[in-house]
Every structure is written in C-alpha cells, then in structure tokens.
Design a protein around this nucleic acid. Structure first.
Length: 551
RNA sequence: GGCGAGUUGGUGAAGCGGCUUAACACACUGCCCUUUCACGGCAGCAUACACGGAUUCGAAUUCCGUACUCGUCACCA
C-alpha cells in the first residue's frame, strides 16, 4: 500500500476520532517534578484477588516514588472484559487502603493524567493506532482463530518459532481493495503490529534490577488492538506509560520476555523509552521435593492477602517484611537502627534480589515480634483493640473495660533497653495475656498449667497478707521476699540452695513460682512483681483462693 | 522445543577478580545472666559457592558447556 492508501484505510477504520496525537501529547505534558524523581505505577487488572506478589510490587512502587519525591499512581487495566470479576476494582483499592500502600495519584485517587482506567481510554489507543497504520507499522488482520491454530501446529511440527510473522503474516500486505472488501463483508479483524524487526539481530536491554540482557529483535506481528477494539496489554502499556510519563515500570519478571516487543513499540511510536525494573516472584521451596515451586493459595495461605488481616499481623510488620524482600540489605539496617522507620531507609534497585525470593515465614514471625517489642504498651493496646473490634468484638469489649490494666500489662518490661518479644500478632494477645482479665482468668483458671507440682497456699497467703509491700520498686520487693523466704526455711538464692540442698525446703524462686502459678495460672510470665502491682492485693488473694478451691 | 533468567550452610541472603581460612539475619544447640519465660551476652551449629572446562599469578566473583529450577512463547494481564 502507498502512503495515501494507508491514509485512506486509517480513515476508513477510524473515521470519527475526536482528536489527533498532537492533542494528547499536549493534554498530557511532561510532569513538573524535581530531577531524579521517579514516576511509578501499580497497574493491576481486576481479574482476581490480590496476593502477596502484587503487594510487593505496589510496595516497591510506593517506596521508590516516595523517596525520590516523584509520583506513584494506580492504573486499572481492565481491557479484558471477559475475565473481569465483580467487585474486582473495589477490591484492589480496598486492599491498598487496608495495607497502607497508598498511591498519591490514579484511579480513585485523582490526578491530571486521567482517566486512569483503560476501558475509558479506547479512543486514545485508537488515535495512536491510526497513526501507526498511516505510517505503515500496523495493519488489520482478518485471520480466524482456526487459521492461527493451524499455523501454530505447523510451526510446532517444523520446530520453528511460533507466532504470526514473516510468511505467516498473510494479511500483512493486503491491498486496500482487499481490505475494503473484507470489511464490507463484515469480516472481523484485529490490528497487528507490522514488526520491522529482524530476529537474527540482537538487542540489548538494561533492566534496573537484572542488568544487561540480550534478546533477538522482536519480529512477530503481535496483536495491538483486539477484535473488540480494546488494546492488548503491550499496546496499552506503551501508550499509557508514555502519556502518564511513567519513568520506571516496576513489574513482575514474567514480563521480561516481552521486553523486545515493548522496546520496539516505544521506538516505533517515537516515545522516549521507560526504564524497567523486573522484580523476581516470591517463590516457595517445597518441603517434600526441595524444588522451588509455584505458590499455591491452598498450600500457602500467607500468599493470600486475607491471611494477614485475619491472623492479626500488623501492617507495619508486613511492610517490614516487604522491605526486606525489596532490598536485601534492609534487614540488617533495621536491626541496627532501632529508632528508624522504613521511610528513613534508602531503597535501591541494585540491592534488589535478582533471583526468586523465597518466602520465609519464620522471618516474618520474628519481624513481627521485633515490631511489637518496639511498641509501647499503649500502642499495643490500641492496635490490638482495633483489630479485635473487627475480628473478636467480645474481646474488644473486654479490652475497653480493662483498658488501664491492659496497658499496664503490655508495658511490663518495656521500659528497659531489652523489651520482651512475646507477641507476634494481635491474635496472640488474648492467649498470652489471658491472666490479665479476671473473668477470663477465672474461666480458664489453671488449665494452662503444665507442671506437676501443687503449691502451699497457706505459705503464700501468709506472705501476701503479712509481708507483701506493693508500694516499692522491684529491687526492694525482691530483697523483702528473700527475707521472707529465709524466715520460712527457704534459701534466699538458688545458688545457696544448690550448695546446701538439705538445709532448705527450697529457694526464693520456688516461692515466686508458686505465686506466679497461683495468680497467672502458668509457669511463664512477664515480671512477677509488675503483675502483682497491677493486680493489687485483693485480686491476688482472690486468685489464691481460687487456686485453693480448684486444685 | 525457542528465547530469557537463576543456582552460596536448615532457611533468607552478603559478596561484583586478591581485604574471604565466605558476612549478616532467622532457625536450632549449649553456656552465662536470672524469681519463670523472654530479652541480652558468649560460644557452637552447619565443615554452603550446582557440575565440568577455560581465562588469570590468583575466580563464589569473568567466559564456554552440562544439569536442575523458574518465567515466557494468547485477540490474558
């Protein structure tokens, strides 16, 4: 076809476009951002539920945009109407809010590069396609699915490259008359790229994470616009990321093999190339086979996003984990900078793992514990309460009723430089602090006790009634209980007892153990004296009586 | 099958030609601290660079093959 014929064809195909390319280029001007600012985007398609992998890439988008004072926007890629699921879009924005990975721009967030949803951008795509047709880089293709299938089979048998290209691209050089005729006959068509590539030549693409990669040039006439006029991912990616002035496309590395196509598209369209950062997928090492296998939502519940909320894993702790996956040096930094936040860390693509990242649940748990240990009692209270309101309203009520006490318990051993690490998630709190609330304690009583001793209630009652002074500090208290131990035939320290086991009934630790069991129902607990202080004498005595009755 | 990528101790990983008799973290074990548990400290653990060649005075680090794993090869993204 001559240029004039192509023009005629383009007008025939798209007679009623309201704008031309120039309009869009002006409508979406260069962003006014400081030098080095990165524009990133999270571009999901509403065809399924969000999973950890999605979260990871959105997190990376957010973090890189934020630290470079750029922009992070949300774009909905809903070009495949067949696979759309109901509520898919709301689900995406909901998850982003729930996990505090918030774009500052985009679908439902506002911005000047709208619309941020592809189904409302069809005319834009068509405008650019029209131009491509005029310039001879795209053409309508009338091949049926059957024909394509046959070619494919033939290619498989001949072991040649699969796809519509070269001699297989039979509609590539249709005459204007032929095209007109088919359209007049009502034949359906797609718009294919007329790829100028030569597969025997090599191109080099530099990925921010993976580094240099070499590919054969793209030479397949890939579909750009589907039969229904909507774009394929590849074409929409080129148009949108150009018009929205994305600087860095951060996406899963399932896309690296389409890099030659994308590079070619940008070139043909005359767009300035974007930088790519392909992140490795989160994988799992199968316990049985030892192989890296695909993640399965059934086998790996943590892969689904619900898991975190349901189990009460703090969002910030998840952020911490995502950060350690995003940059391999984050973990060490965080451990060495107790007072710093994720925002203070400088992420870089160079420190991003190239290979697949294996999910390490133990590490997540540890991170969670560290997270909780750095929180004040009040913060632990507030966050736990918020979580319980949603997942355990009864417990939330109890927490409210005993707010002061609970904060007190959560604060135990928090003031020192080495806080406890006993909680990993909100759902742990109820069990871990069951002794903190009278009604809960009475209910479970001594069921948690897993020792085999019974303790002398008279001795302990005697101590509580006649000796215990709560209005002092821990050291004073401990000195006093040592004296009480001595007066009653117990050694003041375990060492004394070990040296002369025959001269004592036991040692001060035994007395503490007895008290601990009676008032908490368990052998392990945070600092005993702190617990006693919060409980107060009356409740302590109540519990000892309960012990007497129960045992 | 073509194309692309990856392969370091139980796990996650550092390493980018000599500083490596290979970090660090998690897990596990022991000891210390200690009224319990935890925290913390110390020690240990595993005697980890997939395999084979090549380049080099010198390679986990560069190159080439092999194996395995992953991704991709749609009018899905």
């Amino acid at each position: 076809m001559t240029e004039n014929e192509r023009k005629e064809l383009a007008d025939l195909l798209y007679p009623n476009l309201s704008h031309d390319i120039k309009y869009y280029e002006e409508r979406y001007p260069e962003r006014k951002l400081p030098k080095g600012a990165m524009v990133t985007r999270y571009a999901p398609s509403p065809t399924g539920s969000v999973h950890l992998g999605n979260l990871l890439s959105a997190f990376a988008d957010m973090v890189y945009a934020r630290q470079s004072k750029g922009s992070f926007y949300l774009r909905i890629e809903d070009t495949d109407q067949k696979r759309m699921i109901e509520g898919g879009i709301e689900n995406i924005t909901g998850v982003l809010h729930d996990f505090d990975i918030l774009p500052n721009e985009g679908y439902s967030f506002g911005g000047e590069y709208d619309p941020y949803i592809q189904s409302e951008r069809t005319e834009i795509y068509q405008t650019y396609i029209k131009d491509l047709i005029v310039r001879g880089y795209a053409y309508p293709c009338f091949m049926s699915e059957e024909e394509i299938q046959n070619i494919r089979e033939e290619q498989e048998i001949n072991k040649t490259k699969i796809g519509i290209y070269g001699v297989y691209a039979v509609d590539r050089d249709l005459s204007l008359e032929e095209v007109k005729e088919r359209i007049a006959n009502g034949q359906e068509y797609v718009i294919r790229l007329k790829s100028p590539g030569d597969a025997s030549k090599e191109i080099e693409v530099v990925d921010c994470i993976k580094g240099k990669m070499k590919f054969p040039e793209h030479n397949v006439d890939t579909v750009l616009l589907k039969k229904d006029g909507t774009p394929t991912y590849h074409f929409a990616h080129a148009i949108d990321d150009h018009l929205m002035h994305t600087t860095h496309v951060i996406r899963g590395d399932e896309w690296v093999s389409s890099l030659p196509l994308h590079v070619q598209l940008f070139e043909l369209l005359g767009f300035e190339p974007v930088r790519y950062a392909h992140i490795a997928p989160i994988t799992i090492k199968d316990q049985e086979t030892g192989n890296i296998r695909k993640i399965s939502k059934r086998k790996d519940p943590w892969f689904g996003v619900k898991y975190y909320d349901e189990n009460g894993i703090p969002i910030e702790a998840l952020h911490l984990y995502l950060a350690t996956i995003t940059n391999t040096n984050f973990e060490e930094w965080y451990l060495n900078n107790e007072d710093k936040k994720i925002e203070d860390f400088e992420f870089s693509f160079e420190k991003q793992a190239i290979g697949g990242t294996s999910f390490d649940e133990a590490k997540l748990v540890n991170l969670c514990k560290t997270y909780f240990s750095r929180k004040s009692g009040k913060e632990v209270y507030e966050e736990t309460h918020k979580w319980a309101e949603k997942h355990d309203p009864d417990y939330a009520n109890l927490l409210e009723k005993h707010k002061e006490d609970m904060i007190g318990f959560f604060n135990i051993e928090k003031d020192g430089p080495r806080p406890r690490k006993d909680i990993a998630k909100y759902s742990d709190v109820k069990e871990e602090f069951s002794y903190a609330i009278d009604s809960m304690f009475e209910k479970e009583a001594y069921k948690k006790y897993d020792g085999d001793k019974t303790y002398d209630t008279d001795l302990i009652l005697d101590y509580i009634n006649n000796d215990l002074e709560l209005d002092c500090n821990n050291e004073e208290w401990f000195n006093a209980i040592k004296l009480f131990a001595l007066r009653n035939g117990y050694a003041a320290s375990p060492k004394d007892y070990k040296n002369n086991p025959d001269s004592y009934k036991g040692h001060v630790g035994d007395i503490c153990e007895a008290i601990r069991v009676m008032i908490t129902g368990r052998l392990k607990s945070p600092d005993l004296f702190s617990i006693m202080k919060i409980l107060g004498k009356d409740r302590i005595i109540q519990r000892i009586n309960l012990y007497k009755k129960t045992i």
